[in-house]
Design a protein around this nucleic acid. Sequence first.
DNA 1: TCAACGGTTTTTGTATACAAGAGAGGCGCG
DNA 2: CGCGCCTCTCTTGTATACAAAAACCGTTGA
Lengths: 240, 240
Amino acid sequence: MHKLSSMDASTPSHKPAARAAQALRETLEYDIAVGLYPPGTRLDEVSLATRFQVSRTPIREALIELSASGLVEIRPRRGAFVREIGIPRLIEMFEVMAELEAMCARLACRRMTASEHEALQAAHEACEAAAAAGEPDAYFHANEKFHDAIYRGSGNGYLAEQARSLQNRLKPYRRLQLRVRNRMGNSLAEHQQIVDAILAGDDRKAEGALRSHILIQGERFNDFVATLSTVGEPARSRAG
Amino acid sequence: MHKLSSMDASTPSHKPAARAAQALRETLEYDIAVGLYPPGTRLDEVSLATRFQVSRTPIREALIELSASGLVEIRPRRGAFVREIGIPRLIEMFEVMAELEAMCARLACRRMTASEHEALQAAHEACEAAAAAGEPDAYFHANEKFHDAIYRGSGNGYLAEQARSLQNRLKPYRRLQLRVRNRMGNSLAEHQQIVDAILAGDDRKAEGALRSHILIQGERFNDFVATLSTVGEPARSRAG
DNA sequence: TCAACGGTTTTTGTATACAAGAGAGGCGCG
DNA sequence: CGCGCCTCTCTTGTATACAAAAACCGTTGA
Protein backbone atom coordinates (compact mmCIF):
# COMPACT_ATOMS: atom_id res chain seq x y z
CA MET A 1 0.00 0.00 0.00
CA HIS A 2 0.95 3.56 0.40
CA LYS A 3 2.32 5.39 3.35
CA LEU A 4 -0.37 4.68 5.88
CA SER A 5 2.19 5.29 8.55
CA SER A 6 1.46 8.98 8.69
CA MET A 7 -2.24 8.51 8.65
CA ASP A 8 -2.66 6.78 11.95
CA ALA A 9 -0.49 9.37 13.53
CA SER A 10 -3.34 10.29 15.79
CA THR A 11 -4.85 6.87 16.36
CA PRO A 12 -3.70 4.66 19.17
CA SER A 13 -4.15 1.47 17.17
CA HIS A 14 -2.72 0.76 13.73
CA LYS A 15 -4.04 -2.17 11.81
CA PRO A 16 -3.20 -3.20 8.26
CA ALA A 17 -6.74 -2.14 7.32
CA ALA A 18 -8.47 -4.02 4.56
CA ARG A 19 -10.15 -0.85 3.38
CA ALA A 20 -8.51 2.46 3.92
CA ALA A 21 -11.93 4.05 4.29
CA GLN A 22 -12.65 2.06 7.40
CA ALA A 23 -9.36 2.95 9.01
CA LEU A 24 -9.99 6.55 8.08
CA ARG A 25 -13.37 6.43 9.75
CA GLU A 26 -11.83 5.23 12.99
CA THR A 27 -9.12 7.84 12.84
CA LEU A 28 -11.63 10.60 12.22
CA GLU A 29 -13.86 9.30 14.99
CA TYR A 30 -10.95 9.51 17.34
CA ASP A 31 -9.89 12.93 16.15
CA ILE A 32 -13.40 14.28 16.57
CA ALA A 33 -13.73 12.68 19.99
CA VAL A 34 -10.53 14.24 21.28
CA GLY A 35 -11.48 17.61 19.90
CA LEU A 36 -9.06 17.88 17.02
CA TYR A 37 -12.09 18.72 14.93
CA PRO A 38 -14.47 20.62 17.20
CA PRO A 39 -18.22 20.59 16.57
CA GLY A 40 -19.20 22.70 13.61
CA THR A 41 -15.90 22.23 11.84
CA ARG A 42 -16.13 21.74 8.14
CA LEU A 43 -14.34 18.60 7.03
CA ASP A 44 -12.87 19.53 3.70
CA GLU A 45 -12.37 16.53 1.49
CA VAL A 46 -9.22 17.68 -0.21
CA SER A 47 -7.59 18.76 3.03
CA LEU A 48 -8.30 15.38 4.55
CA ALA A 49 -7.10 13.69 1.39
CA THR A 50 -3.80 15.51 1.51
CA ARG A 51 -3.48 14.95 5.23
CA PHE A 52 -3.98 11.20 4.89
CA GLN A 53 -2.15 10.89 1.58
CA VAL A 54 -5.08 9.26 -0.15
CA SER A 55 -7.52 10.32 -2.80
CA ARG A 56 -10.89 11.85 -2.09
CA THR A 57 -12.70 8.59 -2.69
CA PRO A 58 -11.90 6.80 0.57
CA ILE A 59 -12.31 10.10 2.39
CA ARG A 60 -15.82 10.44 1.07
CA GLU A 61 -16.63 6.89 2.03
CA ALA A 62 -15.38 7.46 5.54
CA LEU A 63 -17.42 10.64 5.83
CA ILE A 64 -20.52 8.82 4.69
CA GLU A 65 -19.99 6.20 7.37
CA LEU A 66 -19.53 8.92 9.96
CA SER A 67 -22.67 10.63 8.84
CA ALA A 68 -24.56 7.38 9.22
CA SER A 69 -23.33 7.04 12.78
CA GLY A 70 -24.40 10.60 13.44
CA LEU A 71 -21.00 12.04 14.20
CA VAL A 72 -20.93 14.28 11.18
CA GLU A 73 -23.64 15.83 9.11
CA ILE A 74 -23.45 15.89 5.35
CA ARG A 75 -25.29 18.77 3.77
CA PRO A 76 -25.85 18.24 0.06
CA ARG A 77 -23.40 20.13 -2.07
CA ARG A 78 -22.22 21.92 1.05
CA GLY A 79 -19.85 19.46 2.61
CA ALA A 80 -19.44 17.49 5.83
CA PHE A 81 -19.53 19.15 9.23
CA VAL A 82 -18.76 17.82 12.66
CA ARG A 83 -22.16 17.56 14.18
CA GLU A 84 -23.02 19.92 16.99
CA ILE A 85 -24.92 17.91 19.50
CA GLY A 86 -26.36 20.69 21.60
CA ILE A 87 -27.27 20.28 25.24
CA PRO A 88 -30.94 19.36 24.75
CA ARG A 89 -30.09 16.60 22.32
CA LEU A 90 -27.39 15.38 24.65
CA ILE A 91 -29.83 15.12 27.51
CA GLU A 92 -32.16 13.15 25.29
CA MET A 93 -29.34 10.78 24.47
CA PHE A 94 -28.54 10.27 28.11
CA GLU A 95 -32.20 9.54 28.73
CA VAL A 96 -32.15 6.82 26.12
CA MET A 97 -28.83 5.51 27.35
CA ALA A 98 -30.28 5.19 30.84
CA GLU A 99 -33.13 3.12 29.52
CA LEU A 100 -30.91 0.85 27.44
CA GLU A 101 -28.64 0.20 30.38
CA ALA A 102 -31.59 -0.36 32.69
CA MET A 103 -32.89 -2.92 30.25
CA CYS A 104 -29.51 -4.62 30.15
CA ALA A 105 -29.47 -4.81 33.92
CA ARG A 106 -32.97 -6.22 34.09
CA LEU A 107 -32.19 -8.93 31.58
CA ALA A 108 -28.80 -9.59 33.12
CA CYS A 109 -30.46 -10.46 36.42
CA ARG A 110 -32.16 -13.41 34.80
CA ARG A 111 -29.69 -14.39 32.12
CA MET A 112 -26.17 -13.92 33.39
CA THR A 113 -24.09 -17.04 33.64
CA ALA A 114 -21.71 -17.81 36.46
CA SER A 115 -18.68 -16.84 34.42
CA GLU A 116 -20.37 -13.58 33.48
CA HIS A 117 -20.97 -12.92 37.15
CA GLU A 118 -17.28 -13.37 37.73
CA ALA A 119 -16.43 -11.06 34.88
CA LEU A 120 -18.75 -8.42 36.28
CA GLN A 121 -17.16 -8.64 39.70
CA ALA A 122 -13.69 -8.51 38.22
CA ALA A 123 -14.61 -5.39 36.26
CA HIS A 124 -16.03 -3.85 39.39
CA GLU A 125 -12.86 -4.56 41.30
CA ALA A 126 -10.82 -2.97 38.54
CA CYS A 127 -12.94 0.15 38.99
CA GLU A 128 -12.29 0.06 42.72
CA ALA A 129 -8.57 -0.18 42.12
CA ALA A 130 -8.59 2.76 39.72
CA ALA A 131 -10.66 4.84 42.09
CA ALA A 132 -8.39 3.98 44.99
CA ALA A 133 -5.41 5.03 42.92
CA GLY A 134 -7.23 8.23 42.06
CA GLU A 135 -6.66 7.82 38.35
CA PRO A 136 -9.60 9.15 36.32
CA ASP A 137 -8.33 7.76 33.03
CA ALA A 138 -7.90 4.29 34.41
CA TYR A 139 -11.30 4.52 36.05
CA PHE A 140 -12.81 5.62 32.79
CA HIS A 141 -11.56 2.54 31.00
CA ALA A 142 -12.44 0.20 33.84
CA ASN A 143 -15.87 1.77 33.90
CA GLU A 144 -16.34 1.01 30.24
CA LYS A 145 -15.50 -2.61 30.83
CA PHE A 146 -17.84 -2.72 33.78
CA HIS A 147 -20.76 -1.52 31.73
CA ASP A 148 -19.81 -3.73 28.84
CA ALA A 149 -19.95 -6.72 31.16
CA ILE A 150 -23.56 -5.85 31.87
CA TYR A 151 -24.34 -5.37 28.20
CA ARG A 152 -22.96 -8.78 27.48
CA GLY A 153 -24.82 -10.23 30.40
CA SER A 154 -28.11 -9.12 28.93
CA GLY A 155 -27.95 -12.08 26.59
CA ASN A 156 -29.23 -9.81 23.85
CA GLY A 157 -26.53 -9.21 21.28
CA TYR A 158 -28.43 -6.52 19.43
CA LEU A 159 -29.13 -4.64 22.64
CA ALA A 160 -25.47 -4.92 23.60
CA GLU A 161 -24.45 -3.47 20.24
CA GLN A 162 -26.83 -0.57 20.52
CA ALA A 163 -25.76 0.18 24.06
CA ARG A 164 -22.10 0.04 23.12
CA SER A 165 -22.68 2.30 20.16
CA LEU A 166 -24.47 4.93 22.18
CA GLN A 167 -21.96 4.68 24.99
CA ASN A 168 -19.30 5.33 22.44
CA ARG A 169 -21.18 8.28 21.10
CA LEU A 170 -21.44 9.80 24.57
CA LYS A 171 -17.91 8.94 25.54
CA PRO A 172 -16.36 12.40 25.35
CA TYR A 173 -19.13 13.91 27.44
CA ARG A 174 -19.06 11.24 30.09
CA ARG A 175 -15.35 11.68 30.27
CA LEU A 176 -15.73 15.38 30.88
CA GLN A 177 -18.01 14.99 33.84
CA LEU A 178 -15.82 12.41 35.53
CA ARG A 179 -13.72 15.34 36.66
CA VAL A 180 -16.61 16.69 38.67
CA ARG A 181 -15.89 16.70 42.38
CA ASN A 182 -16.17 13.28 43.96
CA ARG A 183 -18.00 11.87 40.97
CA MET A 184 -15.64 8.91 40.88
CA GLY A 185 -16.41 7.88 44.43
CA ASN A 186 -20.13 8.23 43.96
CA SER A 187 -19.98 6.32 40.72
CA LEU A 188 -18.22 3.49 42.46
CA ALA A 189 -20.82 3.33 45.22
CA GLU A 190 -23.54 3.15 42.59
CA HIS A 191 -21.65 0.36 40.86
CA GLN A 192 -21.60 -1.57 44.09
CA GLN A 193 -25.37 -1.35 44.39
CA ILE A 194 -25.75 -2.45 40.80
CA VAL A 195 -23.50 -5.44 41.27
CA ASP A 196 -25.30 -6.45 44.43
CA ALA A 197 -28.69 -6.22 42.78
CA ILE A 198 -27.61 -8.20 39.73
CA LEU A 199 -25.93 -10.92 41.76
CA ALA A 200 -29.02 -11.12 43.95
CA GLY A 201 -31.17 -11.38 40.85
CA ASP A 202 -33.29 -8.44 41.92
CA ASP A 203 -34.21 -7.13 38.52
CA ARG A 204 -36.35 -4.24 39.72
CA LYS A 205 -33.59 -2.92 41.90
CA ALA A 206 -30.86 -3.48 39.32
CA GLU A 207 -32.89 -1.74 36.65
CA GLY A 208 -33.56 1.25 38.86
CA ALA A 209 -30.01 1.48 40.13
CA LEU A 210 -28.51 1.48 36.65
CA ARG A 211 -31.07 3.89 35.28
CA SER A 212 -30.37 6.45 37.96
CA HIS A 213 -26.65 5.80 37.65
CA ILE A 214 -26.82 7.02 34.07
CA LEU A 215 -29.38 9.73 34.65
CA ILE A 216 -27.16 11.16 37.36
CA GLN A 217 -24.39 11.40 34.81
CA GLY A 218 -26.71 13.30 32.52
CA GLU A 219 -27.72 15.64 35.29
CA ARG A 220 -24.16 16.16 36.44
CA PHE A 221 -23.22 16.92 32.91
CA ASN A 222 -26.05 19.38 32.72
CA ASP A 223 -24.81 21.10 35.88
CA PHE A 224 -21.34 21.05 34.45
CA VAL A 225 -22.19 22.79 31.23
CA ALA A 226 -24.38 25.24 33.12
CA THR A 227 -21.20 26.33 34.87
CA LEU A 228 -19.54 27.05 31.56
CA SER A 229 -22.60 28.64 30.05
CA THR A 230 -20.54 31.22 28.24
CA VAL A 231 -18.23 28.56 26.84
CA GLY A 232 -20.87 26.09 25.85
CA GLU A 233 -22.87 28.27 23.52
CA PRO A 234 -20.71 30.10 21.00
CA ALA A 235 -20.49 27.01 18.85
CA ARG A 236 -24.00 27.86 17.70
CA SER A 237 -22.58 30.54 15.44
CA ARG A 238 -23.66 28.74 12.28
CA ALA A 239 -27.15 30.16 12.53
CA GLY A 240 -25.58 33.56 12.15
CA MET B 1 -36.87 -8.05 -16.30
CA HIS B 2 -33.84 -5.87 -16.58
CA LYS B 3 -35.72 -3.12 -18.26
CA LEU B 4 -36.16 -1.02 -15.13
CA SER B 5 -35.35 1.93 -17.29
CA SER B 6 -36.21 4.55 -14.73
CA MET B 7 -34.36 4.01 -11.56
CA ASP B 8 -37.19 4.64 -9.16
CA ALA B 9 -39.31 2.16 -11.02
CA SER B 10 -39.73 0.25 -7.79
CA THR B 11 -39.96 3.15 -5.38
CA PRO B 12 -43.23 4.83 -4.63
CA SER B 13 -41.70 8.29 -4.31
CA HIS B 14 -39.63 10.10 -6.90
CA LYS B 15 -37.70 13.15 -5.88
CA PRO B 16 -35.13 15.06 -7.89
CA ALA B 17 -32.55 13.92 -5.34
CA ALA B 18 -29.65 16.17 -4.53
CA ARG B 19 -27.35 13.19 -4.39
CA ALA B 20 -28.07 10.15 -6.46
CA ALA B 21 -26.51 7.99 -3.77
CA GLN B 22 -29.17 8.91 -1.28
CA ALA B 23 -32.00 8.16 -3.66
CA LEU B 24 -30.30 4.90 -4.50
CA ARG B 25 -30.14 4.00 -0.84
CA GLU B 26 -33.86 4.52 -0.45
CA THR B 27 -34.60 2.52 -3.55
CA LEU B 28 -32.41 -0.34 -2.43
CA GLU B 29 -33.92 -0.22 1.04
CA TYR B 30 -37.32 -0.57 -0.51
CA ASP B 31 -36.25 -3.31 -2.88
CA ILE B 32 -34.70 -5.28 -0.05
CA ALA B 33 -37.75 -4.76 2.13
CA VAL B 34 -40.14 -6.05 -0.50
CA GLY B 35 -37.94 -9.03 -1.19
CA LEU B 36 -36.58 -8.13 -4.59
CA TYR B 37 -33.18 -8.85 -3.08
CA PRO B 38 -33.68 -11.65 -0.57
CA PRO B 39 -31.35 -12.07 2.39
CA GLY B 40 -27.99 -13.44 1.41
CA THR B 41 -28.12 -11.97 -2.08
CA ARG B 42 -24.90 -10.54 -3.33
CA LEU B 43 -25.31 -6.96 -4.49
CA ASP B 44 -22.99 -6.69 -7.42
CA GLU B 45 -21.82 -3.15 -7.99
CA VAL B 46 -21.66 -3.26 -11.75
CA SER B 47 -25.07 -4.90 -12.06
CA LEU B 48 -26.59 -2.25 -9.87
CA ALA B 49 -24.73 0.43 -11.80
CA THR B 50 -26.13 -0.77 -15.09
CA ARG B 51 -29.57 -1.21 -13.60
CA PHE B 52 -29.68 2.33 -12.30
CA GLN B 53 -27.76 3.82 -15.21
CA VAL B 54 -25.12 5.37 -13.01
CA SER B 55 -21.48 4.69 -12.33
CA ARG B 56 -20.23 2.49 -9.52
CA THR B 57 -19.38 5.46 -7.33
CA PRO B 58 -22.87 6.39 -6.15
CA ILE B 59 -23.70 2.70 -5.89
CA ARG B 60 -20.82 2.16 -3.53
CA GLU B 61 -21.84 5.14 -1.45
CA ALA B 62 -25.38 3.84 -1.19
CA LEU B 63 -24.12 0.41 -0.18
CA ILE B 64 -21.95 1.94 2.51
CA GLU B 65 -24.93 3.78 3.92
CA LEU B 66 -26.93 0.57 3.87
CA SER B 67 -24.17 -1.27 5.65
CA ALA B 68 -24.13 1.41 8.32
CA SER B 69 -27.85 0.97 8.86
CA GLY B 70 -27.33 -2.77 9.11
CA LEU B 71 -29.37 -3.78 6.11
CA VAL B 72 -26.43 -5.08 4.15
CA GLU B 73 -23.09 -6.42 5.17
CA ILE B 74 -19.93 -5.43 3.37
CA ARG B 75 -17.23 -8.04 3.48
CA PRO B 76 -13.85 -6.61 2.49
CA ARG B 77 -12.92 -7.42 -1.05
CA ARG B 78 -15.87 -9.78 -1.22
CA GLY B 79 -18.76 -7.47 -1.88
CA ALA B 80 -22.01 -6.42 -0.30
CA PHE B 81 -24.62 -8.93 0.78
CA VAL B 82 -28.17 -8.47 1.95
CA ARG B 83 -27.88 -9.22 5.59
CA GLU B 84 -29.51 -12.35 6.89
CA ILE B 85 -31.07 -11.41 10.14
CA GLY B 86 -31.77 -14.84 11.55
CA ILE B 87 -34.58 -15.55 13.95
CA PRO B 88 -32.61 -15.15 17.19
CA ARG B 89 -31.33 -11.73 16.19
CA LEU B 90 -34.81 -10.75 15.10
CA ILE B 91 -36.22 -11.68 18.49
CA GLU B 92 -33.52 -9.60 20.12
CA MET B 93 -34.50 -6.66 17.96
CA PHE B 94 -38.14 -7.02 18.88
CA GLU B 95 -37.13 -7.10 22.52
CA VAL B 96 -35.31 -3.80 22.14
CA MET B 97 -38.13 -2.35 20.08
CA ALA B 98 -40.56 -3.22 22.87
CA GLU B 99 -38.45 -1.37 25.37
CA LEU B 100 -38.02 1.69 23.20
CA GLU B 101 -41.73 1.90 22.59
CA ALA B 102 -42.48 1.34 26.24
CA MET B 103 -40.18 4.21 27.07
CA CYS B 104 -41.93 6.42 24.53
CA ALA B 105 -45.27 5.58 26.09
CA ARG B 106 -44.04 6.30 29.59
CA LEU B 107 -42.66 9.68 28.60
CA ALA B 108 -45.67 10.45 26.46
CA CYS B 109 -47.92 10.12 29.49
CA ARG B 110 -46.22 13.06 31.08
CA ARG B 111 -45.18 15.13 28.12
CA MET B 112 -47.82 14.92 25.45
CA THR B 113 -49.53 18.16 24.56
CA ALA B 114 -53.20 18.53 23.85
CA SER B 115 -52.63 18.65 20.13
CA GLU B 116 -50.51 15.54 20.32
CA HIS B 117 -53.34 13.83 22.17
CA GLU B 118 -55.61 14.73 19.30
CA ALA B 119 -53.11 13.44 16.77
CA LEU B 120 -52.86 10.17 18.66
CA GLN B 121 -56.61 9.71 18.71
CA ALA B 122 -56.88 10.59 15.04
CA ALA B 123 -54.23 8.00 14.22
CA HIS B 124 -56.06 5.45 16.32
CA GLU B 125 -59.32 6.15 14.51
CA ALA B 126 -57.55 5.72 11.18
CA CYS B 127 -56.46 2.29 12.38
CA GLU B 128 -60.03 1.46 13.34
CA ALA B 129 -61.25 2.48 9.92
CA ALA B 130 -58.66 0.35 8.17
CA ALA B 131 -59.43 -2.61 10.39
CA ALA B 132 -63.15 -2.18 9.79
CA ALA B 133 -62.53 -2.12 6.08
CA GLY B 134 -60.40 -5.23 6.46
CA GLU B 135 -57.48 -3.78 4.56
CA PRO B 136 -54.15 -4.98 5.95
CA ASP B 137 -52.09 -2.57 3.89
CA ALA B 138 -54.08 0.43 5.00
CA TYR B 139 -53.91 -0.81 8.56
CA PHE B 140 -50.18 -1.22 8.26
CA HIS B 141 -49.69 2.39 7.28
CA ALA B 142 -52.18 3.70 9.83
CA ASN B 143 -50.41 1.62 12.43
CA GLU B 144 -47.10 3.24 11.56
CA LYS B 145 -48.62 6.67 12.04
CA PHE B 146 -50.14 5.59 15.31
CA HIS B 147 -46.83 4.51 16.71
CA ASP B 148 -45.09 7.53 15.31
CA ALA B 149 -47.55 9.74 17.17
CA ILE B 150 -46.37 8.10 20.37
CA TYR B 151 -42.71 8.50 19.43
CA ARG B 152 -43.29 12.16 18.84
CA GLY B 153 -45.21 12.45 22.05
CA SER B 154 -42.24 11.23 24.03
CA GLY B 155 -40.77 14.69 23.72
CA ASN B 156 -37.43 13.07 23.11
CA GLY B 157 -36.31 13.63 19.56
CA TYR B 158 -33.40 11.25 19.74
CA LEU B 159 -35.56 8.49 21.14
CA ALA B 160 -38.11 9.11 18.43
CA GLU B 161 -35.41 8.81 15.78
CA GLN B 162 -34.10 5.58 17.18
CA ALA B 163 -37.56 4.10 17.50
CA ARG B 164 -38.42 5.10 13.96
CA SER B 165 -35.21 3.65 12.66
CA LEU B 166 -35.71 0.31 14.34
CA GLN B 167 -39.35 0.22 13.37
CA ASN B 168 -38.26 0.73 9.81
CA ARG B 169 -35.73 -2.04 10.13
CA LEU B 170 -38.39 -4.45 11.37
CA LYS B 171 -41.01 -3.30 8.91
CA PRO B 172 -40.97 -6.29 6.56
CA TYR B 173 -41.28 -8.74 9.43
CA ARG B 174 -44.06 -6.88 11.15
CA ARG B 175 -45.83 -6.73 7.86
CA LEU B 176 -45.58 -10.47 7.45
CA GLN B 177 -47.18 -11.27 10.74
CA LEU B 178 -50.09 -8.91 10.18
CA ARG B 179 -51.56 -11.64 8.04
CA VAL B 180 -51.75 -13.94 11.02
CA ARG B 181 -55.32 -14.83 11.90
CA ASN B 182 -57.12 -12.04 13.69
CA ARG B 183 -53.92 -10.19 14.45
CA MET B 184 -55.41 -6.99 13.15
CA GLY B 185 -58.34 -7.08 15.55
CA ASN B 186 -56.16 -7.91 18.52
CA SER B 187 -53.72 -5.20 17.58
CA LEU B 188 -56.52 -2.69 17.50
CA ALA B 189 -57.75 -3.71 20.94
CA GLU B 190 -54.24 -3.28 22.30
CA HIS B 191 -54.07 0.14 20.69
CA GLN B 192 -57.22 1.11 22.49
CA GLN B 193 -55.73 0.19 25.83
CA ILE B 194 -52.59 2.13 25.01
CA VAL B 195 -54.54 5.22 24.04
CA ASP B 196 -56.63 5.03 27.18
CA ALA B 197 -53.60 4.69 29.39
CA ILE B 198 -51.76 7.56 27.75
CA LEU B 199 -54.75 9.88 27.83
CA ALA B 200 -55.27 8.97 31.48
CA GLY B 201 -51.61 9.69 32.15
CA ASP B 202 -51.11 6.24 33.67
CA ASP B 203 -47.48 5.76 32.73
CA ARG B 204 -47.09 2.33 34.29
CA LYS B 205 -50.03 0.98 32.42
CA ALA B 206 -49.12 2.63 29.15
CA GLU B 207 -45.58 1.36 29.37
CA GLY B 208 -46.73 -2.17 30.04
CA ALA B 209 -49.41 -2.13 27.40
CA LEU B 210 -47.07 -0.95 24.69
CA ARG B 211 -44.31 -3.30 25.70
CA SER B 212 -46.54 -6.33 25.50
CA HIS B 213 -48.07 -5.01 22.29
CA ILE B 214 -44.67 -5.23 20.66
CA LEU B 215 -43.55 -8.39 22.40
CA ILE B 216 -46.69 -10.11 21.19
CA GLN B 217 -45.70 -9.18 17.67
CA GLY B 218 -42.33 -10.75 18.22
CA GLU B 219 -43.88 -13.90 19.61
CA ARG B 220 -46.43 -14.10 16.85
CA PHE B 221 -43.66 -13.72 14.38
CA ASN B 222 -41.80 -16.49 16.09
CA ASP B 223 -44.83 -18.74 15.85
CA PHE B 224 -45.21 -17.72 12.25
CA VAL B 225 -41.73 -18.66 11.19
CA ALA B 226 -41.97 -21.86 13.21
CA THR B 227 -44.81 -22.79 10.87
CA LEU B 228 -42.60 -22.32 7.84
CA SER B 229 -39.59 -23.92 9.41
CA THR B 230 -38.65 -25.60 6.16
CA VAL B 231 -39.03 -22.39 4.20
CA GLY B 232 -37.22 -20.14 6.60
CA GLU B 233 -33.88 -21.86 6.56
CA PRO B 234 -32.73 -22.72 3.04
CA ALA B 235 -31.16 -19.31 2.58
CA ARG B 236 -28.22 -20.68 4.52
CA SER B 237 -27.24 -22.75 1.52
CA ARG B 238 -23.83 -21.18 1.04
CA ALA B 239 -22.11 -24.40 2.03
CA GLY B 240 -24.04 -26.33 -0.59
C1' DT C 1 -23.35 53.45 0.84
C1' DC C 2 -25.83 49.48 0.03
C1' DA C 3 -27.86 45.96 -2.54
C1' DA C 4 -28.30 43.27 -6.50
C1' DC C 5 -26.07 41.07 -10.39
C1' DG C 6 -22.70 38.43 -13.05
C1' DG C 7 -18.51 36.15 -13.61
C1' DT C 8 -14.89 33.48 -11.35
C1' DT C 9 -13.34 30.06 -8.32
C1' DT C 10 -13.63 26.60 -5.24
C1' DT C 11 -15.75 22.28 -3.88
C1' DT C 12 -18.86 18.62 -4.16
C1' DG C 13 -20.78 14.82 -6.91
C1' DT C 14 -20.15 11.51 -10.63
C1' DA C 15 -17.76 9.04 -14.24
C1' DT C 16 -13.88 6.64 -15.81
C1' DA C 17 -9.31 4.51 -15.42
C1' DC C 18 -6.18 1.75 -13.00
C1' DA C 19 -4.30 -1.58 -9.33
C1' DA C 20 -4.65 -5.42 -6.46
C1' DG C 21 -6.86 -9.14 -3.92
C1' DA C 22 -10.10 -13.20 -4.22
C1' DG C 23 -12.06 -17.01 -6.60
C1' DA C 24 -12.39 -20.39 -10.40
C1' DG C 25 -10.46 -23.50 -13.21
C1' DG C 26 -6.80 -26.01 -15.35
C1' DC C 27 -2.53 -28.31 -14.96
C1' DG C 28 0.91 -31.04 -12.90
C1' DC C 29 2.31 -34.06 -9.23
C1' DG C 30 1.83 -37.60 -5.81
C1' DC D 1 -7.77 -40.61 -9.07
C1' DG D 2 -7.20 -36.96 -5.61
C1' DC D 3 -4.74 -32.91 -4.02
C1' DG D 4 -2.27 -28.75 -4.40
C1' DC D 5 -0.37 -24.97 -7.00
C1' DC D 6 -0.46 -21.64 -10.54
C1' DT D 7 -2.60 -18.64 -13.67
C1' DC D 8 -6.32 -16.06 -15.33
C1' DT D 9 -10.30 -13.56 -14.74
C1' DC D 10 -13.52 -11.02 -12.27
C1' DT D 11 -14.58 -7.89 -8.68
C1' DT D 12 -13.55 -4.63 -5.34
C1' DG D 13 -10.89 -0.64 -3.83
C1' DT D 14 -8.51 3.59 -5.07
C1' DA D 15 -6.96 7.32 -8.03
C1' DT D 16 -7.86 10.68 -11.39
C1' DA D 17 -10.73 13.34 -14.60
C1' DC D 18 -14.71 15.87 -15.50
C1' DA D 19 -19.35 18.33 -14.64
C1' DA D 20 -22.18 21.11 -12.00
C1' DA D 21 -23.57 23.60 -8.17
C1' DA D 22 -22.58 26.81 -4.61
C1' DA D 23 -19.70 30.30 -2.50
C1' DC D 24 -16.87 34.36 -3.40
C1' DC D 25 -15.92 38.78 -5.06
C1' DG D 26 -15.83 42.64 -7.54
C1' DT D 27 -18.72 45.65 -10.29
C1' DT D 28 -22.59 48.46 -11.27
C1' DG D 29 -26.64 50.84 -10.52
C1' DA D 30 -29.77 53.30 -7.59
